[in-house]
Design a protein around this nucleic acid. Structure first.
Ligand SMILES: [Zn+2]
Ligand SMILES: [Zn+2]
Ligand SMILES: [Zn+2]
Ligand SMILES: [Zn+2]
Lengths: 123, 123
DNA sequence: TCACATTTTGACAATCATTTTCGTTTTCGC
DNA sequence: GCGAAAACGAAAATGATTGTCAAAATGTGA
């Protein structure tokens, strides 16, 4: 892994919430890095492809990323205000999704699930 | 509701799956309508604002819409190939999301949840 | 250390869905 | 019919993301 990619991973790790490529680019430049926007996008692409970071879309379609503690399947409880996120699990939901798919004849079932709210600090 | 908006709603109703604004625009023009792309976007905006259609984002961030049978809260089982969707419900999931939010001090909890798979016909 | 192949980088241009603008057309109330 | 307000649509503007391509960094064997 190159130095640049590590810088992006690092910047992401320093945040508890989800950040966009543009956010990270601004952060890195503000810290004095000469990294280019294209490189930030490439690093995030590689990191998400290898499952090292999670991606989700904001309401307006912008992609935001997060370096989670675990790489195993999980979901997020995200603050609508500051975007801070908590990793959560729901075994029952996992089962429900698969059952629902089977019930309607769907195969290769997967799912996306995010919970939003306003965190204690932002309330 | 104007004639144009109705045309958009109609085009959406004729499909069992999710369609993008661009898709609907192409469909309508193909049917001989002189509708403009801007109007399609405005109609979809209004329809989703009033809760008459559901919206979700594809992996590449494009917004896709669907005129569902019910306006009450529900989720979708979507075919990855043809985008056909089935409306599904999961009372347990609804409770789980709220509990999870409360457990971490989040207020005003909502959630997004979509199940994907390959439908029987597309398998 | 040196020449050369390979990978990474970043400035800039190109895409493409979506939004804005703004002048024109319809619709509505009277 | 008439004027105000709402709806339209063509064209320009936005803004995130991707493609291009030459320069810079890195690795490798001699
Ligand atoms: Zn995560
Ligand atoms: Zn918060
Ligand atoms: Zn299908
Ligand atoms: Zn729900």
């Amino acid at each position: 892994m190159s130095t640049r990619r590590d810088a992006v991973r690092q910047a992401l790790t320093e945040s508890t919430g989800f950040r966009s490529a543009q956010d990270l680019y601004a952060d890195l430049r503000a810290d004095g890095s000469k990294i280019g926007l294209t490189t930030v996008y490439r690093a995030l692409q590689a990191l998400s492809d290898s499952g090292q970071v999670d991606v989700l879309r904001t309401d307006d379609g912008e992609a935001v990323y997060r370096a989670c503690d675990t790489e195993s399947h999980h979901h997020h409880l995200v603050c609508r205000v500051c975007s801070t996120a908590v990793e959560i699990e729901g075994p029952a939901v996992e089962r429900w999704a698969v059952e629902m798919g089977a019930k309607h004849g769907f195969t290769g079932v997967t799912h996306t699930l995010e919970v939003f709210g306003t965190c204690a600090r932002c309330s």
